[in-house]
Design a protein around this nucleic acid. Structure first.
Lengths: 121, 121
DNA sequence: GTAATCACCTACTTTTTAGTTAGTTATTGA
DNA sequence: TCAATAACTAACTAAAAAGTAGGTGATTAC
């Protein structure tokens, strides 16, 4: 058992999952890694299905865990820009692997995501 | 949007997460990948905290999704042996990365898991 | 013959996660 | 000036995930 930040983990795998587990975090991180869009609104349009609540909640947790950070572009009209921190970037190989594996899995199920990418929006 | 097995996914990352997401699956897979122990009981002792219900439920889903499979060693006294299928093994780099990243993260927090491994059981 | 072990399963409850709806502050554009 | 947009927040509800407690059939160990 490993105690860290008021939590108990059973092994290093568990530790990592504690930071990136859940339904949305990896999708948010992947989005930030892969596409250049970074505003709150960009997430909303690129992560179909996520609610405002989930989005701001998850962004806050990712910030707290220092996987992402944001630039305050302007305060009076609140404009921000999210980006991956070094820690968030260090998960790069993970994002790539998970995405590639998903594409391969779809392929095995006769869905050519790459070829038909225009169909998925 | 991608439709597969009665579910809707937003992207390949989502597809992968559909198979290995949740609190226990990656831990089970990692265990199977890393250690040689494979019986039901082995999981129970090596995944501290998992309940019987969660374990059998997750094993069943992993079997259904063809990431693991089992050998029936004996029927009269029910004895089985779980193992990773080829698909389950294809996630090898993922298990390794997540484990290593967790160890590095612990290191950043001044916990030397490798050195103190004997402390964690 | 009694207890212990293994590999489960079932009903039920709790906790966690996620969704819904609405509201805030501030700005720009018509 | 009225609607729209951006970036949120908060209260409440619903759904999903996980935990608890107990039970099964079969075997071996004492």
């Amino acid at each position: 058992m490993i105690a860290l930040n008021e939590k108990i983990y059973t092994c290093p795998v568990d530790v990592t999952l504690g930071l990136i587990g859940g339904k949305w975090k990896l999708l948010i991180l992947f989005h930030l890694y892969y596409f250049t869009k970074k505003s709150y609104k960009d997430f909303r349009t690129n992560l179909p299905g996520i609610s405002e609540k989930m989005l701001s909640q998850q962004l806050k947790e990712l910030e707290r865990d220092k996987l992402i950070a944001k630039n305050q572009l302007s305060i009076k009209p609140n404009r921000v820009e999210y980006f991956l921190t070094e820690r968030g970037q260090s998960l790069g190989p993970l994002y790539e692997f998970i995405s590639k594996w998903g594409i391969d899995y779809l392929m095995e199920n006769n869905i050519d995501y790459i070829k038909d990418q225009h169909l998925y929006k």
